[in-house]
Write a protein that binds this DNA or RNA. Structure first.
Length: 505
RNA sequence: GGCCAGGUAGCCAAGUGGUUAGGCAACGGUUUGCAAAACCGUCAUACGCCGGUUCGAAUCCGGUCCUGGCCUCCA
């Protein structure tokens, strides 16, 4: 309300009730939906990691004008369309490692709650019925009846843009009033109610369903910034008008910023959207999450696309994030190797040169915690992880370089184990590094090979030829093969145990 | 027109009164048959502009310019 950060005051200490406005399911979700899902996923993960019990509710709007419109265009029944798209949404956000909400209510399953709330609002004198004569009755919320209207969005009224809105609705008592119940205009699309056949207005579902699953006056309400007005303002009006004298509808509001393309908001109407599926076809789910977390959730994030010379369309920001994920998984591998190494028992007094490493390792998780406590500052959390990973690599390099120094290695091995735990723990709260390393490597390699049209057998043949050439000291031939493969995106690395290869992002 | 966000080094992005954010790119090193990866160093006394407060301001105050969002469905 006051645009400041405040500690969450829980009614029941230790239990945080979270309600997030999910999507209207009439089409496949895009990167903007992914951002909202990931932002609140991090919130829930962080609260749980902090020892709080969380009840997480994210609704699906499956009754809506857009669904009806799309349905009329395609011939698919409205509820069939929304049910199908709801599953797509659930699959897609699950694919980017978002935890399953405790409840994922749909309006179509909560008509009794909606109707009950509308009745209650009429009883409280906050809503009125129109169209008694015609048979198609609507119910409107009376905005002037609610004195606090506009406290979230800082609007005194619904302030009409000069000349922007035409076609005044004749039946509304005040231009700001909004529909709680819309009388049916389509024979096939309506539910029975005390006001005849019809359907709920958009805003009422969140008031009804949040109360159903969380009760009145829950801790955190989230959603996209575009929902502040009118959606959330109207939710407040409805819920508080039905609960006079019972305090705030929600104690804290969190709104995520947009995903922008060319400095403009990504949206269906502008046609500049990239679906979650588009992204996952090109990039790893964890890379997409990492990308979405490089900016604090409230700010705008730029999602750019770039067309390569070979015709491939890539997402440079997500590619960059994927390289970071490769780095983190590679760090994990090195740490596992060092931690699992046989070594002498650590010396009684750890070598001083490891002090700085130990300090970074010991402090990392708490620093991530502090960053997330500060309004989910994921960029700072990622910075901590970056420092930890760098330190870990440094440790691995040092241990390898000084492998004959038994005291050093003896101390480095258990420290590597601690670094491994710290790295996993820091990443886990962000929903990163949660894939077994081998599985991550396999799936990214397979996907990149597919995108580049590469064939593993052909690569292995080229590799063998290069190995033979090098054995014969024909380095020129060997380097030529390296260059040929590199041009195709295959990167070679000669290790003491042989040549390994990976496919670049 | 009203309301709300932002403008930080080549790029992305933290930081809200004094103490190294971090990443990417580039360049120079360590290492390597050559590379890659990894690490070190440089780029970085940067904070839209003008004025004010202060011992001290990217940070507070006033003004101003620019960008975006909401005011119609929107994550």
């Amino acid at each position: 309300m006051n645009h400041r950060l405040e500690p969450v005051q829980c009614t029941d200490p230790g239990h945080v009730r979270v309600y997030v406005c999910g999507p209207t399911v009439y089409d496949v979700p895009h990167a903007g939906h992914a951002r909202a899902a990931v932002a609140f996923d991090v919130l829930v993960r962080h609260l749980r990691a902090s020892g709080r019990r969380v009840t997480y509710v994210r609704n699906l709007t499956d009754i809506d004008d857009k669904i009806l419109k799309r349905s009329q265009e395609t011939g698919e029944a409205p509820l069939a369309l929304s049910a199908r798209m709801a599953r797509v949404y659930q699959d897609d956000v699950a694919a980017i490692n978002c935890v399953q909400p405790d409840h994922e209510p749909k309006v179509s399953d909560h008509l009794p709650e909606v109707i009950g709330l509308v009745k209650s609002l009429i009883d409280h004198g906050a809503a009125y019925v129109v169209g008694e004569e015609t048979g198609s009755k609507d119910v409107y919320f009376s905005v002037p009846s609610f004195g606090d209207y506009g406290k979230l969005s800082h609007r005194k009224t619904c302030d009409l843009e000069v000349g922007a809105r035409v076609a005044e609705n004749e039946v509304k008592r005040d231009p700001c009033d909004f529909a709680l119940w819309k009388g049916a205009t389509e024979e096939s699309y309506g539910w029975d109610s005390p006001w005849g056949k019809g359907r709920p207005g958009w805003h009422i579902e969140c008031s009804a369903m949040s109360e159903r699953y969380l009760g009145y006056g829950f801790e955190i309400h989230g959603g996209g910034m575009d929902l502040i007005f009118p959606h959330h303002e109207n939710e407040i009006a409805q819920s508080e008008a039905a609960h006079p004298g019972q305090g705030d509808f929600a104690k804290l509001w969190m709104h995520n910023g947009f995903v922008n393309v060319d400095k403009e908001k990504m949206s269906k109407s502008l046609g500049n959207f990239v679906t979650i599926r588009d992204v996952l076809q090109r990039n790893d789910p964890e890379a997409f999450r990492y990308f979405l977390m490089t900016v604090q959730y409230r700010g705008p994030i730029t999602f750019d696309t770039q067309k390569l010379e070979d015709g491939r369309v890539v997402f440079p920001g997500v590619d960059d994030a994927e390289r970071r994920m490769d780095y983190l998984y590679a760090t994990l591998e090195k740490l596992e190797a060092l931690a699992g190494q046989a070594a002498d028992a650590p010396p009684a007094k750890a070598p001083k040169e490891l002090d700085a490493f130990a300090q970074v390792v010991a402090g990392a998780r708490a620093r991530v915690q502090t960053a997330l406590d500060d309004d989910l500052n994921t960029p700072v959390a990622l910075a901590v992880i970056a420092e930890l990973a760098k330190t870990a690599n440094d440790l691995c390099d040092l241990a390898a370089k000084r492998r004959k120094d038994k005291a050093l290695v003896g101390a480095a091995v258990p420290l590597a184990g601690k670094a491994l735990d710290a790295l996993r723990s820091c990443a886990d709260v962000l929903g990163l590094l949660i894939t077994p390393r081998e599985a991550y490597c396999a799936r990214t390699r397979d996907r990149r090979m597919g995108l580049r049209g590469l064939d593993a057998a052909a690569i292995d043949r080229a590799l063998q030829e290069r190995t033979d050439a090098r054995a014969a000291k024909d380095f020129a031939r060997g380097d030529a093969i390296r260059q040929e493969l590199l041009a195709k995106g295959v990167e070679l690395a000669d290790t003491p145990t042989g040549t390994v290869w990976k496919v670049g992002v």
